[in-house]
Amino acid sequence: MALATLTKTGRAAIALAISSRPLHLAWGSGDPAWDADGATLPSLVDSTALLNELGRRTPRTSASWSPTRRAASSSPCPPAPKARCRRPATGS
C-alpha cells in the first residue's frame, strides 16, 4: 500500500483552488428509519435532494485553521450549536 504525503505547499495549493470556487453547504437530519437496528442504508451517491432539510448556507469568506495556533480546543470552532468559526490570529 502506498502512502501519500501532502506537503504544506500542496495543502496551500489545494486550499487556494477550493477557496477560488463557490461553495454551497446544505445539511439535513435524514430519515429517522436509518437509525433503527439493522436498517439498510440507501446509496446516496446520485442523490440531489436532502431528507428533512435543516439549512443551507453559502459562506461569504474563507479562512484557514492551523493546529499550531489552536487554544485548548482541538477543533477550529467551539462546540456550541450556533458557533461560528473565527479567522486565526495573525502574527503568531
Rank of each mutant, 00 (worst) to 15 (best):
M1A: 14
A2M: 06
A2N: 12
L3D: 07
L3H: 09
L3S: 08
T5I: 13
T5F: 10
L6I: 14
K8W: 03
K8I: 03
G10T: 02
G10S: 05
R11K: 09
R11N: 01
R11H: 04
A12H: 00
A12V: 00
A12S: 08
A12N: 01
A13E: 11
I14A: 13
I18E: 04
S19I: 01
S19T: 04
S19W: 00
S19P: 00
S20V: 01
S20P: 01
R21Y: 02
R21G: 03
R21I: 03
P22A: 09
L23K: 05
L23Y: 00
H24C: 05
L25Q: 02
L25I: 11
L25K: 03
A26V: 05
A26W: 02
W27E: 07
W27N: 09
W27K: 10
G28R: 06
G30F: 04
D31T: 07
D31A: 13
D31G: 08
P32K: 12
P32F: 11
P32I: 13
D35T: 08
D35N: 10
A36W: 12
D37H: 14
G38W: 10
G38K: 05
A39Q: 05
T40A: 15
L41G: 05
P42E: 09
S43I: 06
L44V: 15
V45F: 01
D46G: 05
S47T: 13
T48H: 07
T48G: 03
T48F: 08
A49T: 15
L50I: 08
L51V: 15
N52E: 10
N52T: 06
E53M: 11
L54S: 11
R56C: 03
R56W: 01
R57I: 09
R57L: 14
T58M: 05
P59L: 02
R60Y: 02
T61F: 09
A63D: 07
A63N: 09
A63F: 12
S64H: 08
W65I: 12
S66A: 08
S66P: 01
P67K: 03
P67Y: 03
R69T: 12
R69A: 14
R69E: 12
R69I: 03
R69G: 13
R70Q: 14
R70I: 08
A71D: 15
A72D: 14
S73I: 04
S73R: 12
S74L: 07
P76N: 02
P76W: 00
P76I: 00
C77M: 13
C77L: 11
C77F: 06
P79E: 09
A80C: 04
A80I: 01
P81S: 06
P81A: 10
A83P: 01
R84V: 11
R84W: 04
R84M: 07
C85H: 02
R86V: 07
R87A: 14
R87V: 11
P88D: 10
P88N: 08
A89G: 11
T90C: 07
T90R: 06
G91I: 08
G91D: 15
G91R: 13
S92C: 12
